[in-house]
Simulated assay, not measured.
Amino acid sequence: MHLNSGEKKTLAIIAAIVVAFVVVVGATVAVLTKDTWSGDGHDDEGYLQLAIGDDLVRVEPAKWCDVLVRECDPPGAELRPSPHEPIPAGESALMSVSQEIAESPWVLYLMYADRNGKIINPEPEGIAQRSDSTYTQVLRSTPDRVLINVEVQPLSAVTEGDDYVARGILSVNTTPEGFTVRTTD
């Protein structure tokens, strides 16, 4: 097969684009999984990540316990503060949970307010997720249904009655900037 100089240049450009794409994808995967292979993160602590617009935010647990809920960090009823990562009304965000969460059942709680700031669901219904079935969820916030809080509760092996006890709490305040949530009518 004989290629003229124009065809050779075209193939060289295509090859360079493919190599650049592979490098970018590889670097992105390396950055997103850094704690897994570097030993910098906690071995078994789950986390979630939110992609809001162009930002990628990692949310660490407010509380994390071993699967039998014998040892917790922080101990007792204490919780670490939850971050504020606003999701503008009318926009969506992608939420991904780590493998440590997704490999077991977990529950997603979403709290919404109406356009006037009144909480629509003060005690949100949990959305149960099965083991190894869901890693990523789309979180939608509309002007009439403003997403103000996201909470993920991975479940433990411990039960109380018919319910499994949460082994961790990962929570993030997603109230949009300038939006006021009313706590009373």
Results as ranks from 00 to 15, higher is better:
24 V>W: 05
22 V>W: 05
51 A>T: 12
20 A>C: 12
33 T>M: 03
38 S>E: 04
57 V>W: 01
33 T>D: 00
26 G>K: 12
40 D>W: 05
42 H>Q: 13
49 Q>I: 15
40 D>R: 12
52 I>P: 00
43 D>N: 08
54 D>Y: 06
51 A>W: 05
36 T>R: 10
28 T>N: 13
26 G>V: 11
49 Q>A: 14
31 V>H: 04
36 T>K: 08
37 W>K: 02
43 D>Q: 08
50 L>V: 10
34 K>C: 00
34 K>G: 06
51 A>I: 10
26 G>E: 08
53 G>D: 08
47 Y>S: 15
43 D>W: 08
21 F>T: 10
40 D>Q: 13
35 D>K: 03
24 V>M: 11
33 T>I: 03
39 G>W: 03
57 V>K: 13
53 G>V: 02
24 V>Q: 11
55 D>W: 01
38 S>Y: 01
39 G>D: 02
44 D>M: 12
54 D>W: 05
47 Y>A: 13
57 V>Y: 06
50 L>G: 12
54 D>M: 02
52 I>F: 01
41 G>R: 09
38 S>R: 05
22 V>I: 15
26 G>I: 15
48 L>E: 05
46 G>Q: 09
55 D>F: 02
48 L>D: 02
36 T>S: 05
41 G>A: 15
57 V>C: 07
27 A>N: 08
37 W>D: 03
45 E>T: 09
33 T>K: 06
22 V>F: 03
35 D>S: 06
44 D>S: 11
55 D>L: 10
51 A>N: 12
23 V>S: 07
33 T>G: 00
56 L>N: 04
29 V>T: 14
20 A>E: 05
32 L>P: 03
47 Y>T: 12
28 T>G: 12
25 V>E: 12
48 L>F: 02
48 L>S: 08
39 G>M: 07
48 L>G: 03
40 D>H: 01
56 L>F: 09
49 Q>D: 09
23 V>T: 14
42 H>Y: 03
47 Y>E: 10
56 L>P: 01
56 L>Y: 02
30 A>W: 09
34 K>A: 08
54 D>E: 07
51 A>L: 13
51 A>H: 09
51 A>S: 15
35 D>Y: 00
30 A>S: 14
53 G>Q: 06
28 T>W: 00
29 V>K: 15
24 V>L: 15
37 W>V: 11
34 K>N: 02
35 D>N: 11
49 Q>K: 14
55 D>A: 14
35 D>A: 06
53 G>W: 04
42 H>T: 11
43 D>C: 06
48 L>H: 09
41 G>W: 05
23 V>A: 14
29 V>Y: 03
23 V>F: 10
31 V>K: 10
25 V>W: 00
47 Y>I: 02
34 K>M: 01
29 V>H: 08
34 K>S: 04
44 D>F: 06
21 F>G: 15
29 V>A: 15
37 W>G: 04
35 D>Q: 04
20 A>P: 00
25 V>H: 04
56 L>K: 04
52 I>N: 00
49 Q>T: 15
55 D>V: 07
38 S>W: 00
47 Y>V: 08
45 E>C: 07
